[in-house]
Design a binder for these strands. Structure first.
Lengths: 204, 204
DNA sequence: AGTCAACTTGACCCAGCGGTCATCTTACGA
DNA sequence: TCGTAAGATGACCGCTGGGTCAAGTTGACT
């Protein structure tokens, strides 16, 4: 559970800082279990604080989601940057996707990202995330580990696919997503790749 | 827009039958645009009927969703069965996936399926759908068009992935999903396939 | 210890949702 | 053309969920 910083803000009082962490953790759990339907009241209960405290920290539900998504992006950006030093660029990309998918839970977190779209800080973190994936993909492509017509944006869009796929099953084995990650990753391999029917999208 | 039948029920009066069609079409549009948040009132307005009429046809929101999902499964089952005669089993599977993905809209319809899980008629249709995909995949595998370790269930779980992937983009080109379908389909090709880390799931 | 701003609390508000039903309208067989 | 059962209507209900706020509590600094 990464400690969350609030850039350029006066430091919080000790109890407030603790509650903020509890809230973010409880919210992440609740969203993972119940999807977007998780209520602010349930999150408060899970964190062991009153409902009003949630809104003292996050003015709206959107703001709370933005904080979670921002943390998520920041953490994955750090992972991607660390893997840039790896000796095997193909394995590094696969490792990154494994960490990214493994960090999601029962519900995939894609929907949270779309809710947080308006937040400028999240946009900033998302752009850094995008760039760090791009670097990872470029290295893998240069090494011939993935097909030439794949971009970082493609990989970004496919991150949630493995977890999303197993969402249809009522009680999936917890790491069944690895199977679908492997299939999708095999879709990126260069051997005998078929040309793609549409050009890569630009972002945003 | 496939005409919807209601098996073993007394035929509807002309106006009621028409309204039922209007409602199903309006609901499909509304769910496609707004996801699960589409409200019964909005669906009624879009169909040009009063709110009470919606509940006269579908006792609950779940029942309405089940009707939509059931239609969807039935239509795709018919497509899959037609393609079983195709001369090229690999192309037939790709064609099926293209039709299945193309039939979805802005929001992927995966979430509707999970809501409709309790309905026994939908379960029946889903099982037929599953079986028809299985037959398509078996033929493709026998022909060497897809890797040996892929099952019909795998393909079923991956149907929504291409549309889901482009959901991150604010204004995706309408058929960008074809790019991600091509990548995922390439993940199924036999040439140089890497062994999959987890066994195929059973269903359900 | 005393002070006070920072923080927490939970009762409260209200909009919007799914769902109901008494009443009105209409398709259709005779 | 008419009688009537099937269907349409929209005001209404209870509830849930996001969000507010005046009053109470507490961490931190002197």
């Amino acid at each position: 559970m990464p400690s969350v910083t609030r850039p350029d803000r006066r430091p919080l009082r000790a109890d407030a800082a603790r509650n903020r962490e509890l809230l973010l953790a409880a919210a992440a759990d609740e969203f993972a279990e119940r999807g977007i339907d998780a209520s602010m009241a349930d999150i408060a209960r899970r964190a062991g604080v009153a409902k009003g405290t949630v809104f003292a920290h996050f003015a709206t539900k959107e703001e709370l989601i933005a904080a979670i998504v921002g943390d998520h992006f920041a953490a994955l950006t750090a992972v991607a940057r660390n893997l840039l030093d790896s000796a095997d660029p193909g394995a590094a990309l696969l490792e990154f996707l494994t960490v990214a998918a493994g960090g999601q839970r029962q519900h995939d977190l894609a929907f949270l990202q779309t809710v947080a779209e308006g937040d400028s800080e999240v946009t900033e973190l998302r752009n850094e995330f995008h760039a760090s994936i791009g670097a990872l993909v470029d290295r893998a492509r240069d090494a011939g580990a993935v097909r030439a017509d794949i971009t970082g944006t493609d990989v970004l869009l496919l991150i949630c696919a493995p977890v999303h796929a197993i969402g249809f099953l009522a009680n999936p084995e917890p790491d069944l997503w690895r199977r679908y990650l492997a299939i999708i990753f095999d879709g990126l391999r260069p051997e005998g790749a078929n040309p793609l029917p549409r050009p890569a999208p630009s972002w945003p």
